[in-house]
Structure formats: C-alpha cells, structure tokens
Amino acid sequence: MLSLRPEEDEKLRELLTELNRESKSKIVLLIDKAGQLISRSESPAFSSDDITFASLTAGNVAASEALSKLLGDKNLNHMFTETEDEGIYMILIDDKYILVSIFDKNASNLGIVRVKIKKYYGKLVELLRQIEERIESESSVTEQIDVEDIDLDTLFE
C-alpha cells in the first residue's frame, strides 16, 4: 500500500514545484500507473480537474504501453501529446509512476521540459525509493486511520 508522510508530501511537492518553475510548465503531476494522483506542483492557475486528469493519463500510458508490447517492442519510456496550444509530456519512472508536464507552447517547449526533467529525474527517483523503503519497513499504517464512522448516505441527494 502506497502512503505519504507529511514531510515526504512536502519534499515531493517542493521538487515538482521547482521543476514546474524551471521548465516553465503550467503544472507538473506525479501519478501512479493505476491512475492515482500522488503529488503535483503548486500551480494555482491550473484549473482542470487533476484527479480526472490523472486517471486519463494512466489510461493513455497503459494503452500506449500495451500497443508497444503488441509491436514486440520493449517497455514504453515516454510519450508526448500535443494540442493546439499545449504540450503534454509523460515519462515513466521505475515502471511504477508517471511524471507529467503540461506546458503552454508559447511559454515553453518540449526540449526545455525534457532537459529540466532530466535534471530532476535522479532526485525524484531517489525520493520515491526512500518512500518505498519506509513503507516496507513499517508494519502497518492503517491503525493510524479511523475509518469507522463512514456514512455513505450523506453523499446522496
């Protein structure tokens, strides 16, 4: 089970925010391959629904990966989607996570984004591995969660 401690959340957020600033992206997201949003840069101007974005990105990557396997290719490393105004660059990390940069093509370009991701890639991998090691060394995190009194009736109109 993947979990983030407050200090890890902060470190991840700082790293992604720094990468976002340097690459002049609109936002940088860290997603797991199942479609969960793990962290994102501080990007108040980004108004799209990041949860939905994470789910679609994971679907997109999964489909492309399956395609490349079908072609007998090795694993997918990265992919790029372009709209009229924006570029979306996705790169796989440790075959478990997806790092995504969304950038305005008038403010940045694929080259800058890739160079800046390269600069931060090592740090990000190291941080994620530290988190995984901490998770493995813990016996249980769930005793710190109180989910007893969940009332789903209040969800509905």
Binding site: L2, S3, L4, R5, E10
Partner: peptide, 8 residues
C-alpha cells in the same frame, strides 16, 4: 492498491 496521504 489504496494510496494514503497523511499530509492532506
């Protein structure tokens, strides 16, 4: 696999 964020 559930994902738990203790910060948020």
């Amino acid at each position: 696999m559930p994902f738990i964020n203790f910060a948020t």
